[in-house]
Amino acid sequence: PKCKGCFKAIVAGDQNVEYKGTVWHKDCFTCSNCKQVIGTGSFFPKGEDFYCVTCHETKF
């Protein structure tokens, strides 16, 4: 599969995040607002966007 963030291949051994059939490298899975890496931490999906806890609390 290819990462939705950088469009490069995800190979065995890469740390990745999967959500609803889409996959990202862990470092490519970032907050849509502040761009900080969410990685495998908590996040809030809103449509096609993903927000870290801090930005979600501030924005919504």
Rank of each mutant, 00 (worst) to 15 (best):
F50H: 02
C52R: 01
I10W: 04
A9D: 10
V11C: 05
H56A: 08
Y19W: 11
C52M: 02
K35F: 02
C3T: 04
Y51L: 05
G39F: 06
C6P: 00
C28A: 00
G47M: 04
C6W: 00
C6L: 00
K2E: 15
I38L: 05
K2N: 15
V17Q: 12
S32K: 13
F60P: 14
S42W: 04
S32D: 07
F60M: 06
K20P: 05
K8H: 13
K2F: 15
P1N: 15
G47D: 07
K20E: 14
V23Q: 07
E18C: 09
K2S: 15
D27N: 06
C6K: 00
K4C: 11
E48M: 14
K2Y: 15
E57V: 05
Y19A: 13
V11T: 06
A9Y: 01
G41S: 10
Q36D: 14
C6R: 00
C3P: 01
T58S: 13
K20I: 05
C31I: 08
C28T: 01
C34F: 01
T30C: 15
Q15F: 08
P1Q: 13
D14H: 04
K59V: 14
F50D: 03
K2C: 15
H25C: 13
W24I: 10
V37S: 13
C34A: 00
G13R: 10
H56Y: 10
V53C: 11
H25W: 00
A9W: 02
Q15C: 01
G5Q: 05
V11Q: 14
G21K: 15
V23R: 09
K8D: 06
Y51F: 10
V23M: 13
K59T: 11
G21N: 01
V37P: 11
V37G: 06
D14C: 11
K4M: 13
G39K: 07
V11H: 07
A12D: 14
T22H: 09
E18Y: 02
C55W: 00
G21T: 09
G47T: 03
E57W: 11
V17I: 09
V17W: 08
E48H: 11
K26S: 15
F29A: 04
Y51V: 13
C52K: 02
V53S: 06
H56Q: 04
H25R: 00
V53H: 13
G21Y: 03
K20G: 13
G21W: 13
A12F: 05
K59G: 11
Y19I: 15
H25T: 02
C55R: 02
D14G: 11
K2Q: 12
V37L: 09
V37E: 05
C6T: 01
I10V: 07
G21Q: 15
F29R: 07
G39A: 08
G13H: 04
T30M: 14
A12V: 11
C52H: 07
T22P: 03
F43N: 08
A12Q: 12
A9G: 05
K2T: 15
V11G: 11
F43I: 05
G5H: 07
A12K: 14
K8F: 04
W24L: 06
C52W: 00
C6A: 05
N16L: 04
G41L: 09
K35I: 02
D27Y: 12
Y51Q: 05
T54W: 03
W24Y: 02
K8R: 04
K26W: 04
C31D: 01
K46E: 06
K46W: 05
C55S: 01
K4A: 15
K4T: 15
G13S: 08
F7Q: 15
G47S: 06
K26G: 13
K2W: 15
K46A: 14
F44E: 02
Y19M: 10
K35Y: 07
D49W: 12
I38A: 02
T22N: 15
Q36T: 15
G21L: 11
D27W: 08
Q15H: 14
Q15N: 10
S32P: 04
D14K: 05
T58P: 06
T54E: 13
A9C: 01
K26T: 13
N16V: 05
K8T: 03
D27V: 05
T22M: 09
N16W: 08
C34R: 01
E48L: 12
A12G: 14
Y19P: 06
Y19E: 15
C31M: 03
S42F: 03
V23F: 14
G5F: 04
C52E: 04
C52F: 00
I10A: 10
V23Y: 08
G21F: 09
D49G: 11
K4P: 15
K59E: 07
H56G: 10
G5E: 11
W24F: 07
K20D: 13
P1D: 15
K20V: 06
K35E: 04
F44A: 11
A9M: 03
Y51W: 15
K35Q: 06
K59N: 03
F44R: 07
P1S: 15
F50S: 04
F50N: 12
A9T: 05
G41R: 05
K59M: 02
C31G: 00
N16G: 09
F29K: 10
C6M: 00
G47A: 14
F29C: 13
K46P: 00
T40E: 14
H56C: 06
G47F: 02
G39R: 06
K59L: 13
E18D: 10
N16M: 07
Q15R: 12
K20N: 08
H56R: 11
Y19L: 13
K8L: 07
E18R: 05
T22V: 12
F7K: 10
V11F: 07
T30D: 14
E18L: 04
S42P: 10
D27T: 12
T22D: 06
F50L: 07
P45A: 09
C28Q: 00
E57M: 07
C28P: 01
V23T: 12
D49N: 10
Q15D: 14
V37A: 08
D27R: 08
W24M: 07
I10P: 08
V37C: 05
T22K: 04
T58M: 02
V53Q: 11
K8N: 08
F43V: 13
C34M: 00
I10K: 01
C34N: 00
K8Y: 11
K46Y: 14
V23C: 06
V17D: 06
F7I: 11
P1T: 15
K2D: 15
P45M: 01
A9N: 01
I38D: 02
K26P: 13
C31P: 01
C31Y: 04
F7Y: 07
P1W: 14
V53K: 09
G39Y: 06
F43A: 09
C55F: 00
F29Q: 04
V37I: 11
V11R: 11
D49Y: 10
C31R: 00
I10N: 05
E57T: 09
V23A: 11
A12H: 10
E18I: 01
Y51D: 15
A9R: 04
Q36C: 09
E57C: 05
Y51H: 06
Y19C: 07
G47Q: 10
N33G: 04
V17P: 14
K2P: 08
K46S: 06
V11W: 07
G13F: 03
G13C: 13
T58Y: 08
F29I: 01
T22I: 03
T22A: 09
T54C: 11
G13A: 14
F50A: 07
K4Q: 10
G47H: 14
C52Q: 01
F44Y: 02
Q15L: 09
Q36S: 12
E18H: 15
D49E: 14
T30K: 08
T40D: 11
N16F: 03
T40L: 10
T54P: 07
C3S: 13
D27H: 05
K35P: 13
V23N: 04
K59Y: 11
D49M: 11
K8M: 12
T22W: 11
C6N: 00
F43K: 09
P1H: 15
C3V: 04
F29N: 07
C31A: 02
T40F: 11
G21C: 04
V23I: 12
E18M: 04
K2R: 15
F50P: 03
C6D: 00
W24T: 13
F7H: 09
T40H: 13
G13K: 10
F43R: 10
S32A: 09
D49R: 10
C3N: 01
A12S: 06
S42V: 07
Y19N: 01
K20M: 08
K2G: 15
F50K: 06
